[in-house]
């Protein structure tokens, strides 16, 4: 094969990959604007399904639950994960890498195992103490547990990319420990914190398996609603919900990209001299 035809073949492969990645999403978005109840024939543009969606109390309830769960769990996760990421950095010379491994393990644990385990755990506590009955509370705890490793990883990576002398410079320039956190650590970590917050949000909004096992009767989220809705067949209403979710995830990914590209985020060391 010549270089030219190889390049063509690779280019073709790339387009094929994009088609498999985005065509299903495009189909969902497309049919959400269908005027009739069909996923096979398009009968003209319409916002009917969106109108129906917003007049359905069950969906609005699920939407509110999803947003409340995502915001609360992500806020808690960036605080805990941020401190953890900093702790791993601060004590990185003390042979604690096994601890880090322990924290990151849930990232690769199958969701279904994690979800069932959380459910059993919460039920056991509830039976003995009468707290942690299934509901938004248990879901928040469950979501925080899988969000924390991602946040810690991002914050830790950002810290490792910084010039270590920056920490000493802030001490040398009269910053007390609290001032160092306020005027040095938080500002230099803000891109990592913002993007890990957005990542935590999307992880929470996307999650079905763990939510399913830890949810209570009153705490249905959008993914759970969709799952129960499609048991009765895929309606364009489901397409409309999915379109809204795809839109929100795209939006957050975009913000994350913008945050990471700010000038103060890119110059992590002082050695990139451009004289």
């Amino acid at each position: 094969m010549t270089g030219r035809s190889l390049a063509l073949a690779l280019r073709g492969f790339w387009y094929l990959l994009l088609v498999f990645l985005y065509a299903p999403l495009a189909v969902v978005v497309f049919y959400s604007f269908n005027a009739i109840n069909s996923s096979a024939r398009f009968a003209g543009f319409s916002l009917t399904w969106y109108e129906q969606l917003f007049s359905n109390d069950a969906i609005i309830g699920a939407l509110l639950n999803t947003v409340a769960l995502a915001l609360t769990s992500s806020l808690i996760a960036i605080v805990i994960g941020g401190m953890l990421g900093y702790g791993f950095y601060r004590y990185r010379l003390r042979r604690l890498s096994w601890l880090i491994w322990l924290i990151y393990l849930p990232m690769v644990m199958p969701d279904i195992i994690f979800g069932i385990a959380e459910m059993i755990f919460f039920i056991a506590i509830d039976e003995r103490l009468g707290i942690l009955g299934p509901g938004l509370g248990t879901m928040i705890i469950a979501h925080v547990t899988f969000q924390v490793p991602f946040v810690a990883l991002l914050v830790n990576a950002r810290l490792l990319a910084l010039d270590p002398q920056l920490f000493e410079a802030s001490q040398d320039l009269y910053a007390s420990p609290w001032q160092r956190a306020r005027f040095f650590l938080l500002p230099v970590l803000s891109p990592a914190i913002v993007s890990s917050f957005l990542l935590a949000l999307t992880l929470s909004i996307d999650d079905f398996v763990i939510s399913f096992f830890t949810a209570g009767p009153e705490s249905t989220t959008l993914p759970i609603y969709i799952w129960s809705a499609i048991k009765k067949g895929v309606t364009p209403e489901v397409n409309a919900i999915a379109t809204l979710m795809i839109g929100s995830v795209f939006f957050m990914a975009l913000i994350s990209l913008v945050v990471q590209r700010r000038p103060s985020a890119s110059s992590t060391t002082n050695r990139s001299a451009s004289s």
Partner: peptide, 30 residues
């Protein structure tokens, strides 16, 4: 941070989140 001593570091250690003016003013601000 309680010593009347300042250091010019080998890597210069300028704060990436602050412009030149705010880098220079850091010690006085603290």
């Amino acid at each position: 941070h309680r010593r009347s001593v300042n250091t010019v570091f080998q890597s210069y250690a300028l704060f990436p989140h602050r412009n030149v003016r705010r880098n220079i003013g850091f010690g006085l601000e603290m």
